[in-house]
Design a protein around this nucleic acid. Structure first.
Length: 500
RNA sequence: GCUCCGAUAGUGUAGCGGCCAAUCAUUUCGGCCUUUCGAGCCGAGGACUCGGGUUCAAAUCCCGAUCGGAGCACCA
């Protein structure tokens, strides 16, 4: 077959190769995609999915990628001034530089204008019902008394609303959909409400009392920006149904949509932006970049690499089912990157003394990276007195033969809770290998104090001298894991744990 | 309660009528290699929610059940 029809064979083989990652889009001309966060906190791993996937599609089809801040709720999900820039930093870090940045709160008057047009089309009305009252109408599919108000009166009421004549919760602008729509979620939804809390942006502050809700703001923006494809969480599926009414009134074409399910990461559980914010204020976390948090700022501080995060989310695809993930998957991706680029060092948490009798004074020369011989070696002078990790010490038995990695073989003589005594034994690694002895790491006692901050707390110990020169770098503590050296001060090093 | 949606190995995915005794990644377990319990290499294990139907043929189509999720906010 390979001789008579090689093409056919290729085709067969090709069909067997699975489609990895993102499915192709329909309508691939002039692709414009957006990611529209509320900047009420920094980007998290969840945001990263939105940033990466939207941006990746835009790149793939030579289109444009827009970041739009949907910051139209000054009260309930109040934006955080710093978060606007944080988002942009994080996008850049992920290699998803936006072609354009839009801030919804800059466009409030424009939304007012479209609202007026809808009123004039008899497609919207001012509703004075109380929340609960309207819910009753909605649930029984009956129009409320304000729905049939004439256009001129509605225009006057709208102006009164803008002029601040109504208190919060006294009036809203609703979009007329269909009170008989079988899904109650779609019936006459609210487009604008009154909020008297000032906006956090200094240039806005108390300029507006009437604020649009997501469905309205997003509907108008998506059209004006020429968005061709929207990819977002499936919690916004009903949004599309609501927004289509606005599109119909204006005769606009709705973008293609794709939705994904909820992502729950086992290690972090349910951490909403607002609950994190609260916990930080209470002092439960040191800040938004606390290593126990799923923010991108925290990931960066721990030494997670942007390319690993990107690869991870692209291969995840865009399924609509809800998924539960373990960070292990992301760690595996990151390990592939950092393993090749990280220097190796020894670090002994909760060190235990090990005294070696008859030890020659010598210099150990472990490699900086086992597969990059040309990186050179660390040089460690050893006199016969070292420290080992408590976890290793606990497993050690008297008379055991073991090897101090890159140093020499020893035989354990005596073990107490505080100190272990051993004697030096000549010979190479083969002896230990042959007897299936352990090879453990060690440090000399005068190394820097190291604190490793991890997802559950912290660990303290002693490390190699060379670690002090690695501030900002991701290194591997051998047999311990990958960490990012966060700061070095005097003889104290703080490291953020990434993963094993 | 009302309206939608989904269900493939431990986890996440591919497949969407015949290439499927089901893909790929990760995880797990062996072995090799290695002065790390890291990486690499080799190998193994592990899944179509259930019940009916349509069809010569179903993971793929239809119906029902079960389970899970989302929306029904003057949040995004």
């Amino acid at each position: 077959m390979s001789e008579i029809a090689p093409d056919l064979l290729d085709e067969l083989n090709e069909k067997r190769t699975p489609d990895k990652g993102l499915p192709p889009l329909e309508c691939t001309d002039h692709v414009v995609m957006r990611f529209a966060p509320n900047p009420n906190g920094p980007a998290t791993l969840g945001s990263a999915r939105g940033i990466i996937v939207n941006s990746e599609y835009a790149k793939r089809y030579h289109g444009r990628f827009i970041i739009r801040f949907d910051d139209t709720d000054p009260k309930t999900k109040r934006p955080l001034s710093d978060a606007y820039n944080w988002y942009l930093e994080d996008c850049r870090w992920l290699g998803a530089e936006p072609d354009e940045v839009i801030i919804a709160s800059d466009h409030i008057e424009m939304y007012y204008d479209y609202a007026r047009q809808l009123i004039e089309k008899n497609a919207a009305y001012i509703c004075f019902c109380e929340k609960d009252e309207f819910k009753k109408y909605k649930d029984s599919a009956v129009a409320c008394p304000h729905r049939e108000q004439d256009i001129n009166t509605t225009l006057e009421n709208w102006q009164d609303m803008l002029d601040g004549k109504y208190a919060p919760e006294k009036a809203v602008l609703r979009i007329k959909t269909d009170m008989l729509h079988k899904d109650p979620a779609i019936r006459d939804w609210v487009a604008f409400r009154i909020v008297d809390t000032p906006h956090p942006r200094p240039e806005i502050r108390d300029r507006y009392k009437v604020w649009p809700l997501l469905d309205f703001e997003s509907a108008i923006e998506d059209h004006l920006l020429g968005i061709t494809h929207i990819i977002r969480g499936k919690d916004l599926i009903d949004s599309e149904h609501r927004q289509r009414y606005v599109y119909k009134y204006f005769n606009w074409k709705y973008p293609e949509t794709l939705h994904w399910g909820r992502v729950k990461i086992h290690e972090f559980g349910k951490l909403s932006t607002s609950s994190m914010s609260k916990a930080i204020k209470e002092g439960k976390y040191t800040g938004w970049d606390d290593p126990r948090l799923p923010t991108l700022r925290a990931m960066r501080r721990r030494g997670m690499q942007p390319e690993a995060i990107c690869k991870f989310f692209i291969e995840l695809g865009v399924g609509e089912t809800d998924i539960g993930l373990s960070m292990e998957n992301l760690y595996a991706e990151n390990r592939k990157v950092v393993d090749q680029t990280s220097k190796r060092f020894f670090f002994t948490p909760e060190p235990v003394k090990l005294i070696i009798r008859d030890a020659p004074v010598t210099v150990a020369k472990p490699m900086l990276h086992p597969s990059h011989r040309n990186w050179g070696n660390r040089l460690i002078s050893v006199a016969g007195n070292v420290l080992i990790s408590k976890s290793d010490a606990e497993k050690i038995k008297e008379n055991e033969l073991l090897r101090l990695k890159d140093l020499y073989n020893i035989k354990i003589l005596k073990k107490t809770a505080e100190v272990i005594t051993a004697e030096h034994i000549g010979g190479g690694i083969e002896i230990v290998r042959k007897k299936k002895g352990k090879i453990i790491h060690w440090v000399v006692p005068d190394g820097p104090n190291i604190t490793v901050l991890n997802v559950t707390g912290e660990e303290k110990g002693i490390g190699e001298r060379g670690i002090s020169d690695c501030a900002g770098e991701v290194v591997q503590f051998e047999r311990y894991g990958f960490v990012r050296i966060d700061s070095v001060k005097d003889n104290k090093v703080t490291a953020y744990f990434a993963h094993k």
